[in-house]
Simulated assay, not measured.
Amino acid sequence: MNAPGTGLHPLRLTVTAKALVFGGHSIARRLGKRGIPDWSIAETWECSDVEGAGGVVTAGPLAGRTLRQVTLDHSQELMGAGWSGEYFPVLTKFIDAAGTLPVHLHADDEAARRLEGQPNGKTEAWHILDAAPGATALCGVKAGVTPEQLRAALEAQDFDAVLRRLPVRAGETLYVPGGTPHSFGPDTLIYEIEQTSDIQQHAMRWRMEDGSPVDASEFGSNVDMLMRQVDLESRPDFTPGRGIAVGDGVERCFLCASPYFALERWRAGTAEPLRHSFATAQILTNVGARVRVRSGTWSEELGRAETLLLPAVCGEVEIAGPADVLFGYLPDLDRDVRAPLREAGGPGGVERRARGNTGVV
């Protein structure tokens, strides 16, 4: 039940930093994020309700409350009228692939429930913030590869024999349905949005936590489970998104959208501020210079690589330019994506399909 009269304001949450073997220093040194440890950091979980790594409100009347508690106690103020759920449904991260990520996949919803005992799977999308010239990613199984060929190649660690290698360019986005084997890096910096989950199956002979070897028995079990969850037909591609002008020097770009999440990038100059109205919670992440954020009577500065969670009850936000920010959210596709695209004079979304999963851009 929602507590009456709480009047939720924008929320700042604690961030979980992950020191994994493929990480580096780009989140702090390229993005300018403060308050993270001064060693190789692979990921920062910006807005998380994953069990054991959930965010905690750092200031205001709800300081000390977990995101899970806020979601349960103020569900419709946070998520919008008619929404109900047991946890916040969207997870966002910065990922620094200074090295190469392990080849892995995440279960889709059906496999997560059937094989992992989890309520949902983990479809995700990567928005490329920076990448070295010639950077590539592995994503999806090549057409015509059989399960037997895939397994043999994974056992031999010959990933290019069976997986698609794609060029990576800053500013593009890749929607990765659950069940799609993938990897990216080195020297690639991304913002990731996904379903709230931490399930994954690896095909590596080393552990990403510390690089220690995985013994033959465990490796075989890992590959067994990966093969039970893999989608051989999922072959997504990068897209530049669809941009529309929404003001004098203000651009809104729809990077990806699906029933699981949507991601937009907004840029504004100084002619007029960025103004955005919304009816569901928005994860606002600053990927540019420090900005001033206003919502109703609330106003604060948001530094580089910092994140705010804007509850649905706020309804609108104004950001003084110059600004370069991301908005991630759980969409009503007709209201939040197709309608604004139609109003801007373009088609109401272009669907990209992969075995029943849809990214709309």
Rank of each mutant, 00 (worst) to 15 (best):
P340W: 01
F278L: 05
R113E: 00
T66Y: 08
V141F: 06
R34H: 11
D332E: 12
C139R: 05
V15M: 02
V176H: 09
L8W: 01
E316H: 13
E124C: 12
Y329I: 05
T146V: 06
I128E: 02
A216E: 09
P347H: 07
H9F: 11
D332M: 09
V293H: 13
H104I: 00
R12N: 04
G346P: 03
L91M: 04
T280I: 07
G171H: 08
F238R: 07
K122A: 06
F219C: 01
E124Q: 15
Q76E: 15
G296T: 14
R342C: 08
E272I: 07
R352E: 12
V57H: 10
V168Q: 02
E318R: 15
E155P: 09
W126P: 08
P311W: 10
P89M: 09
G171I: 14
D248V: 03
D210Q: 01
E306P: 11
P322S: 07
Y175H: 13
E251C: 06
A143Y: 01
A216S: 05
D224Q: 09
G241Q: 04
R228N: 02
F88L: 04
N222Q: 07
L284A: 10
D248A: 11
L105Q: 09
A216P: 00
V325I: 13
G241N: 03
A135H: 03
E251R: 14
R169M: 07
G64T: 12
L255P: 05
L138M: 14
W266H: 06
V162S: 02
G60E: 04
G296W: 14
G178L: 05
H106E: 09
S234C: 08
D160Q: 11
A98R: 15
T196Y: 01
S234P: 05
E51W: 03
S221I: 05
A59K: 11
P167Q: 00
M227Y: 00
D108H: 02
R352M: 11
R65T: 03
G144S: 07
P119E: 07
M208W: 10
P259W: 00
R228L: 08
P61E: 09
A216Y: 02
E272A: 09
G85Y: 06
Y329P: 07
E43A: 08
K93E: 03
R294N: 12
D224G: 04
C47Q: 11
L72D: 11
H182A: 09
E172T: 15
A203R: 05
S48P: 02
D334A: 15
L62N: 03
E77N: 08
P61C: 06
T270E: 11
A131S: 15
H104N: 03
E300R: 15
P119N: 11
